[in-house]
Write a protein that binds this DNA or RNA. Structure first.
Lengths: 330, 330
DNA sequence: GTGAAAGCGCTAACAA
DNA sequence: TTGTTAGCGCTTTCAC
């Protein structure tokens, strides 16, 4: 493996000149630039990013820590982040915390040790601790998490208002017992979702509170089980508000297993406008969050944070849209 | 930001001792270990991974370069890789090449410059060049790509045989004009898929070759357009074999738009056993690849490659299963 | 415009 | 068992 030394020797110049030439500094004789580039190519020289970052005391890498890579919503967010980063010359490494606070902490530690320039974090819980990162001057942007204690930049996806709108819509369609299937307590997105649901329900008494709420890990299997459980109650719900796409897939499976038809028998509205939601019969009414824009915005916030490290923290809230389809009417 | 120096001063020892203590070397006085650890905590010391890797000439990071993070199949592969890596103490960074050879090349370059320990690569095309990595002694494992030129470890997902089985199944069900919607030419998975389709079709003449084949980027929108196009032909197909989940979602949308019912009007079999494939009506017949195991196996191959850099290249082939549901019978 | 040399933070000989 | 020291590969003053 060739080093900058080898290139310098071959080109008959000093390592300083090689460095300058390869980094496009204008103060280098064109003839030398040419010799350096030729030598580098001949030796198949690849600059050592570790050494460069160590010396420069900065890296061109962001970490994006998300909770569930299986959820299509996150993958759209990831694209938004990536596009924003790439445009500014940063690479993004994706870390999947898998809803596991320990894994999350591990990835945050690695991010810190590898001295990434910034972290975009979808926290597994409101207890996730980022103070360590902040103290080490790593820029942090959180997604879907209200500020608490230390103020950090955040982009909020409108989970609460979206859940409120979705639930209200079900009530307006004449459903009387609307249940809610959402993620674990402490999970910011899940908490927001529940809060929005409760906003809407409080205005329309008739529910019996927690009997109609199920909090489970946000995967297909759990959505199925929670729905089966809800339907088995003495006084089962006649509608469901569901916090994400995988949970919704599980809920629909459960309805099918119980020979219930979405809409006619049990109204259902869910977060995440995944491609398949239009394919099921009846098509699924969804609350659509601007996933790509969330990612793009997070990238934007991170960039300006890197430019102005001591600026006041900003929060950007994006709106969610209700897309009415067949699953929310009889 | 505290360095090992600061810790050494505070603990009243040399940096060497700090390093040894923090890395759990057994040859250090327990009392000193305690002092060092206390000092490190008090200073909120975080080791600088860049400096460590530079000195050790090795990193504990793998790059996983995939072509489409939106495809659920890849996300399962990613989990398999991650689990295998984590068990051995490696972190995995995910790079999304987005079917774009340029982006892919960029990520491979970054991997090389950051001196990752190994790369697991799902290539965008058979032309993807990994020689640079190999020359720099970066371990490489490819997924779903037959060896060409340089021999590298590979795990094959059984795309060809799966496509063959799926297509044969359609023929056996009595469909006469089976079309194929697959990814771009050069994309290894797409090529394998087409090859399997052709294996099956050749045995049952009656098709007219390329008129029934559509090669498009593997996304929902393209699947829709390709299917609309196929159906608009003078002599349209009565069945479809589709190369991945997103394409299949698009194909189903197209059928719905043309008021055709899957199975009865147009038989359809697709790769990827996504959760939603059971929810559509009729449920989708799929070829199911063992995605998680593919990832797990790739991790295993990479680990043994790291242990034995000069061993002969290995290829592991995993089988695909045909899951017959309603969309492939009248 | 170019080179010599220092040093980023860490680990691993080698000495003591 | 502990400390001293060299050096990983690069960038960047500071002289020239």
């Amino acid at each position: 493996v060739a080093t900058i030394q080898d290139v310098a020797v071959r080109a008959g110049v000093s390592t300083a000149t090689v460095s300058r030439a390869l980094n496009g500094k204008s103060t280098v004789n064109p003839a030398l630039v040419h010799r350096v580039i030729t030598a580098a190519r001949e030796l198949e020289y690849e600059p050592n990013g570790l050494a460069r970052s160590l010396r420069r005391q900065e890296t061109a890498v962001w970490a994006l820590v998300i909770t569930d890579i299986q959820n299509p919503f996150f993958t759209s967010v990831a694209r938004g982040v990536e596009d924003g980063a790439q445009a500014a010359g940063y690479s993004v490494v994706l870390c999947n915390s898998d809803e596991n606070p320990q894994k999350e902490q591990e990835y945050l530690k690695v991010s810190l040790q590898e001295r990434v320039a910034g972290v975009i974090l979808w926290p597994t819980s409101v207890h996730t601790d980022v103070s360590r990162l902040l103290e080490h001057d790593v820029a942090v942007v959180t997604i879907d998490r209200a500020l608490r204690g230390r103020s950090v930049d955040a982009v909020l996806g409108g989970s609460r208002s979206g859940a409120r709108r979705g639930t209200r819509h079900l009530v307006a369609q004449g459903y009387r017992r609307v249940a809610c299937v959402t993620g674990p307590s402490g999970n910011p997105a899940a908490d927001e979702c529940l809060a929005g649901y409760e906003d809407a329900i409080r205005a329309h008494p008739g529910g019996d509170g927690d009997a109609l709420v199920r909090r489970v890990p946000g995967q297909v299997k759990e959505g199925y089980a929670a729905t089966i459980d809800l339907l088995a109650q003495p006084d089962p719900p006649d509608a469901l508000f569901v916090a994400n796409g995988p949970l919704a897939a599980g809920a629909l499976e459960a309805l099918a297993a119980r020979r219930l038809r979405a809409g006619r028998d049990v109204g259902i509205v869910a977060f995440d406008d995944a491609p398949w939601t239009r394919l099921v019969d009846p098509p699924l009414t969804v609350v659509s969050q601007p996933a790509y824009d969330v990612g793009r915005t997070a990238a934007r916030l991170l960039l300006s944070r890197l430019d102005y490290p001591s600026a006041a923290a900003r929060t950007v809230t994006l709106g969610a849209d209700l897309v009415v389809r067949g699953s929310s009417s009889r």
